[in-house]
Computed example of a mutant assay.
Amino acid sequence: MRLLGLPGLDPYNFPQQEAWRYRRALRRAQNRIVASGQVILGPGVAAFEAAFAAWIDPALAPESAVGVANGTDALELALRAAGVGPGDAVALPSHTAYATLAAVLRLGGRPLFIDLASERPVLCPEALEQAIASHPGAVRAVIAVHLYGEACDLGRLSALCERQGIPLIEDCAQACGTRYAGQPVGRHGRFACFSFYPTKNLAACGDGGAVVARSPDDAEHLRRLRFYGWDASRQAVQFGVNSRLDELQAWLLATKLNDLERRIAQRRQVAEWYRQELAELPALRLPGDGELWRHSYHLYVVQLLPALRDRALAACRAQGIPAGLHYPLACHQHAYAAERFGSRWSLPHTEALLPRILSLPLHPYLPRRQVRQVARALRGVLVEGR
């Protein structure tokens, strides 16, 4: 923790803390690029893709992971590879980062918003099954979002999608390092999509993303999709876009991938400090592991009474604590989505959750004294009434 004493280094700022710790790795990445002369889709990307595929599942071929420009592109290309096109219905939770919906809209798809599980910010299998039954033959794909670092009920969701013949796409943007049944999430869907945005558990120094495909044919399709639809001879044989992971990010991510399990353990330690500091506070629900899964704590999102949430948020911010809301609006409540698809959706669990959530700062390097500062701010609202 000596690094925290450096002038100007903010203990709450994860990208700043991360950039300082990996500054030498970034220089090594630059040197590799100078040595190879390749900045796009070179040896660094190939090495990272192979390492990432093996990390998800050692049984996967090295080509199963396909690096792309960002997490939104990862979702869009997975949807395209799954055969989703203009007008096709895609089932997804409305409570997610808007990027999930943006990927559907970019290819002209039609969102079918599904409610959350009771008391959890992830897709409800029963609600999904009812929606599929209410729209026979219409749902062309399901996006299961592992929000905040929590895992969806992958066993039930994958079984349901398999019975219905519907591709399951795991949105793992906030769950790199989350485990389900002892294994990293990303193993159950036909595709798994990741973001390496600088705030993520596995963070680039800029944008980046990846799609992991179970099938070699799907992986090859994705490789053509990300590069104009070109085959090995650079002839366009299908539709394609320009969405490529660059060498600088790939070399840096490969280094950070080696540290990922340790970083997740550090996140879990900070979450344990929060549990110790906040467990006795009234009317506060803390996140934690499930019966079949282990949290990676991309975000630390507590729940409290709506009447107290905004007061707690204001108290934190008044003390320089960067608490936040992920997310103040569900996707169907955004003006553009409401205008195009209507705002009257039956999503009772989603709409009950939104006014209760509060994101507290958490990253692998957060000192315990900052956790105590956050706890004091919440205690002032929830116990002392300040």
Rank of each mutant, 00 (worst) to 15 (best):
T96W: 10
A97P: 09
Y98G: 06
A99L: 14
A99Y: 07
T100K: 12
T100Q: 12
T100A: 15
T100N: 14
T100F: 01
L101W: 11
L101Y: 15
A102D: 14
A102H: 14
L105P: 12
L105S: 08
L105D: 12
L107P: 04
G109C: 07
R110K: 12
L112D: 09
I114R: 10
I114K: 07
D115S: 11
L116R: 13
L116F: 13
L116P: 11
A117M: 15
A117E: 15
S118Y: 10
E119A: 15
R120C: 03
R120W: 12
P121F: 11
L123S: 13
E126Q: 15
A127L: 12
L128Q: 08
L128A: 09
E129R: 10
Q130W: 00
A131V: 03
A131R: 04
A131M: 13
A131Q: 01
A133M: 07
A133H: 02
S134L: 09
S134Y: 01
S134W: 00
S134F: 00
H135E: 08
H135A: 15
P136Y: 13
G137L: 04
G137Y: 04
R140P: 00
R140C: 12
A141C: 08
V142R: 09
V142A: 03
I143N: 02
I143G: 04
A144F: 07
A144Q: 05
V145I: 09
V145E: 00
H146Q: 01
H146V: 05
H146I: 00
Y148M: 06
G149E: 15
G149Q: 10
E150S: 12
E150I: 03
E150P: 08
E150H: 15
A151D: 05
C152E: 03
C152R: 04
D153H: 09
D153Y: 05
D153R: 13
D153F: 04
D153M: 08
G155T: 11
R156Y: 05
R156D: 15
L157V: 06
S158H: 02
S158P: 03
S158K: 05
A159T: 06
L160W: 00
C161I: 06
R163G: 08
Q164M: 02
G165K: 08
P167Q: 01
L168S: 11
L168E: 05
L168F: 11
I169A: 14
I169Y: 13
I169N: 07
E170W: 03
E170Y: 10
D171P: 11
C172V: 00
C172E: 02
A173E: 05
Q174K: 02
A175W: 03
G177I: 13
G177Q: 07
G177V: 08
T178I: 04
T178C: 13
R179H: 02
A181F: 11
G182Q: 02
Q183E: 14
Q183P: 01
P184V: 01
V185T: 04
G186W: 07
G186E: 03
H188T: 14
H188D: 13
G189C: 02
F191I: 00
A192F: 01
C193D: 06
F194T: 04
F196R: 10
Y197N: 14
T199K: 03
T199H: 10
K200I: 00
K200F: 02
N201W: 09
N201E: 01
L202F: 01
A203I: 04
A204V: 07
A204Q: 08
A204D: 11
A204F: 06
A204C: 06
C205M: 13
C205T: 14
C205E: 15
G206A: 09
D207M: 15
G208A: 05
G209I: 11
A210D: 08
V212N: 03
V212Q: 01
R214I: 07
